[in-house]
Design a protein around this nucleic acid. Structure first.
Lengths: 168, 168
DNA sequence: ATTTGTGCAAATCGTTTGCATCTGA
DNA sequence: TCAGATGCAAACGATTTGCACAAAT
């Protein structure tokens, strides 16, 4: 319950949802060179549902518990990183101390509600970014992340210029 | 030595550089309601030079040490946050566990070299972002951060689509 | 049987806090 | 004088790691 926006799922992910149940998940894990263990299947089941999700390790751990699956927090971390390494997830950094893992692995961006710690997808096709300078020296662009931090009304302090100039 | 790009300084910051020396710094701190203590002056001196900087607490602490100023790490953190609260700095989150503080308080974006942990400014005027959707419900946009992650050659794994679609 | 994964608890890392001491106005 | 700062060390929260045990091929 973090995703207000329905967002399109990559086709190669859709086939592993409730549609196929465990079978699809098992296949997908195998394809990644990951043994389909009880814990990984459970976590994958929670993650790769019909809607995209943004979860922290802690959140996923809690969910697993509630779903009656005993998984240690360490394993949740391990699994999230394995999934990320295999391209099944994307790590999103918006807060200093916490990592979010995003099941939407397509290019897209985020609203981040600082009050609630909620991430909301902004589909890539809605936005266009122009005038991006060349990557420095012999470096190449790996990823472009746009984070729009929003707050529920009421500006506090922060006296000054509008932070980012955005032409909509 | 983190800033390859010369970037324009806001005028109200320029007057506190080596030009005026301590005097300007003292005044500026006072204006923020912060007592110009030895430590704050030293840190401000290191931070607000002619070029914009991106530092972590740890880095600044080390620098202070090297400059012969004894400041506890706790005070470095306190000071960075006070400066940030007063709008003298901006906090930039690009890595999971670490916070960067940026002396450039104008709207702008960043290259982030994941290999080296180096931030490089992208002046705001070079970039334009179009098609940003409305902020959700009763929320308002607080800040827009674009982070272009770059790596020094050699793609590793990461099989898939280019992360963000960017038209330059 | 082997290899790989898991759980636990301890270790780490960046950051924050409590509190006694110091210092600037 | 005395509110406000600093330093230290302990507390913290998120994440990682070491190692004995369990499960998958």
């Amino acid at each position: 319950m973090i995703q207000p926006l329905p967002s399109p799922l990559p086709t190669h992910l859709q086939d592993l949802d409730q549609a196929d149940g465990q079978a699809g998940l098992v296949a997908r894990l195998r394809r990644c060179g990951l043994r389909p263990t009880r814990q990984r299947l459970a976590l994958a089941g929670l993650l790769f549902g019909p809607a995209d999700r943004h979860v922290t390790a802690e959140q996923l751990h809690t969910e697993a518990d509630r779903a009656g699956v005993r998984v240690s927090l360490a394993t949740v971390y391990n699994t999230l990183h394995q999934f990320t390494d295999q391209g099944l997830l994307r790590e999103v950094v918006v807060e200093a101390g916490r990592s979010y893992f995003d099941t939407n692995i397509l290019g897209h961006h985020h609203f981040f509600e600082s009050d609630t710690g909620t991430l909301i997808d902004i589909p890539d096709h809605e936005i266009s970014i122009a005038g991006l300078p060349q990557a420095p020296e012999g470096a190449e662009i790996e990823r472009v992340d746009l984070v729009v931090r929003v707050r529920r009304r009421a500006q506090t302090t922060d006296g000054g210029t509008a932070p980012g100039t955005v032409q909509t």
